[in-house]
Design a protein around this nucleic acid. Structure first.
Length: 210
DNA sequence: ACCCAGGTGGCCC
DNA sequence: GGGCCACATGGG
């Protein structure tokens, strides 16, 4: 596979080291959560928000001992408590609602995240997109990083990369996702690594300019 | 005092 | 199908 996109992946892999090393660094920097539930909650909390603020919200949830889908579902009636805990992540009223609805969906319809992810990728994605507040990027982040399913995540950094490298002019989510998936081996690790490296690279460049 | 940060849904045309 | 807006906090 010698396409532009694959070449960029290879050059990033050379630059940032093997996936194994890369993820070790990534984990050290605190960007990765140990369990699926934290990854999912982080995916919603990080919408249009920097990771530092998300960390604060997750820390509050952890210290309040409600950092789990089941527990958030249980405190759901007290939405104001949830709002207060996640306040540092911004858009906290919306996000509290979104997080609660997600937890409610999982508990009521599947019992647990594990059971939810036992379904096929397409079914999972369809169900996630039905939840208000979960759009394509959040759904795919959840599927790729918490569910270990082969789907490529498109985000703002990916769009910047596509523009800068003049890969295509059509920037719609679905088109970009198909383009990346068609031009990369269908491999969960590659999808995870490449998306993470695109974000890392994007942040470095922003830093340099500033 | 600005400007930005890994989105989403609602509204308009 | 695309453009614009509200949503809110913390850091540079």
């Amino acid at each position: 596979m010698k396409t532009k996109i694959y070449q960029i992946y290879l050059s990033f892999a050379r630059k940032y080291g093997s996936p194994k090393e890369f993820w070790r660094e990534w984990c050290k920097s605190g960007k990765t959560r140990q369990n699926r539930e934290e990854i999912v909650l982080g995916a919603i909390l990080t919408q249009r928000t920097n990771w530092r603020n998300v960390e604060k919200a997750l820390k509050n949830l952890k210290e309040a001992r409600v950092l789990s889908i089941e527990k958030i579902y249980k405190i759901g009636k007290n939405i104001e408590l949830l709002e207060k805990l996640i306040k540092p992540s911004g858009f906290y009223k919306q996000k509290a609602k979104r997080i609660y609805q997600f937890c409610e969906f999982i508990v009521k319809n599947h019992g647990s995240l594990e059971k939810f992810f036992k379904q096929d990728l397409e079914i999972c994605r369809e169900q996630l997109l039905k939840i208000s507040g979960i759009g394509p990027e959040t759904a795919d982040s959840i599927l790729l990083y918490a569910g270990n399913k082969p789907i490529f995540v498109i985000d703002e950094y990916t769009r910047r990369l596509v523009k800068k490298r003049k890969i295509t002019d059509k920037l719609s989510y679905d088109h970009l996702q198909q383009l990346f998936q068609q031009n990369l081996p269908k491999d969960i690790k590659i999808y995870q690594d490449f998306h993470a490296m695109i974000a890392l690279d994007g942040r470095e460049k922003i830093k340099k300019i500033v």
